[in-house]
Design a protein around this nucleic acid. Structure first.
Lengths: 228, 228
DNA sequence: ATTGAGGTTTGATCGAAATCAAAACGCAGC
DNA sequence: GCTGCGTTTTGATTTCGATCAAACCTCAAT
């Protein structure tokens, strides 16, 4: 069930203002864009849009996680990306008016900032600053997508999991501990694995000093994990 | 060996003007950008840039094909994209000054239009038209990359090859025949396959009416292939 | 505390594609 | 037409991860 609040509240506004898309944007630029924003909330499992729909809106995540996935002919699903707080998705619709290229689903209860594709398209031609911000976001999403292809093709399941863990460790830490921001089944999808494969990957990382308690990951020796 | 010609010749200029990046751009916009262009030629196997290099330039392919790939720790290579005539690559450097995210290699003798990242970054803030063209290109590359992830995760080798073939068939054709634009080993890489796997995929498509003679692909019944 | 429903782990099996090895093919240069 | 090199194909084997099935764990609701 979609619940739209037409005005941003203060907290949402703050989250948005500090997201990569708007960070570094002037007050005026920000004000212009948020004239065209609405806040939408979704419950876990709700569909935000469907592959093939016409791209009327694009989104920035305020809270929670969004799962982007595609279907094959038999209806099997494969995740292609996970978007979290501050991430912007489906912004290709601004420049490429063909249909959304994937399904987007709330992985849990979420709130999104929803922008009108059409209105922002106009803003882009008027404001170099807004254009620049969107290009930076596109660049970032493109880099991540190519990285994902490379990771899929180069690394085994345990290596992909190790990489994911290492991204969440402070660069120079000896040891570390953190909490997964979402369900393991979503992490499995993000890494292109079945949940069973993720579970087995975690247990094969025990030998590299990784222990898992529920959603809490503990790394004894970060540099050993790097060598794994 | 890199061979730089500082001025575009007429033919190169035409190719560039009709490439997706410049198609639809005004004469003035085009002129502005090509002040900052050089033409580079490379021989087969030459490296254009290396992952980790600082992104001084980005490129549009004039002729031939470019292989984008990454290495794992053991030095095994995995292709992540193939860029052909009219395609623009490494344009993320304009907005994201961190290093190139992949290695780029000439798959055969090629000519490229080479743009200075820094100069174009300035143009983008001055000209909405140029900004819009770059955003469209970024969008297109992002869509392709996400499509690639989905294809890898959803489809088997024969299905990926079938999809590739179908993209090269006229939408409504009953039967078709076309020539692969590059070596089979490059196609294998593009599809995330070992050359042996591509070869086996082709032979498993014989049952769907696909025959292969060297680089020439013949499809008896396009709609049967679609159902494969 | 008990129940029940998701989510996760473990076990067994299967299948797709990588890898290694060698044969066959295609083609440019002589 | 031959020669020889690089590409592609074919064959045998291995490996990784998917799939199916069942047990287990967690936690919210009763």
């Amino acid at each position: 069930m979609v619940n739209k609040i037409l005005k941003l509240n203060g907290r949402d506004r703050d989250i948005l203002a500090t997201s990569p898309l708007f960070k570094g944007m002037s007050q005026q630029g920000f004000s212009k864009v948020i004239e065209h924003v609405a806040v939408s909330s979704f419950e876990a499992k709700d569909l935000i849009f469907r592959e093939g729909d016409s791209p009327e809106y694009f989104y920035t995540v305020l809270t929670g996680f969004v799962r982007a996935y595609r279907l094959n002919r038999e209806g099997r699903e494969a995740d292609i990306a996970v978007y979290g707080p501050g991430d912007t998705f489906a912004e290709t619709g601004i420049f490429n008016s063909d249909a959304y290229g994937f399904n987007a689903q709330a992985a849990e209860g979420i709130t999104l900032a929803r922008f009108e594709t059409e209105s922002v398209r106009k803003l882009v031609t008027e404001s170099p600053e807004i254009a620049f911000a969107l290009m930076t976001t596109l660049s970032c999403n493109l880099k991540n997508a190519l990285e994902c292809v490379a990771d899929d093709r180069l690394h085994t399941a345990p290596q992909r999991v190790a990489n994911f863990i290492l991204k969440h460790c402070p660069e120079s830490a000896q040891s570390a501990r953190f909490r997964l921001p979402f369900q393991k089944s979503l992490l499995a999808g993000k890494l292109g694995l079945a949940p069973e494969a993720l579970s087995r990957a975690f247990s094969s990382l025990k030998s590299a000093g990784v222990s898992v308690h529920g959603r809490v990951i503990e790394i004894n020796d970060v540099s050993a994990l790097r060598r794994f």
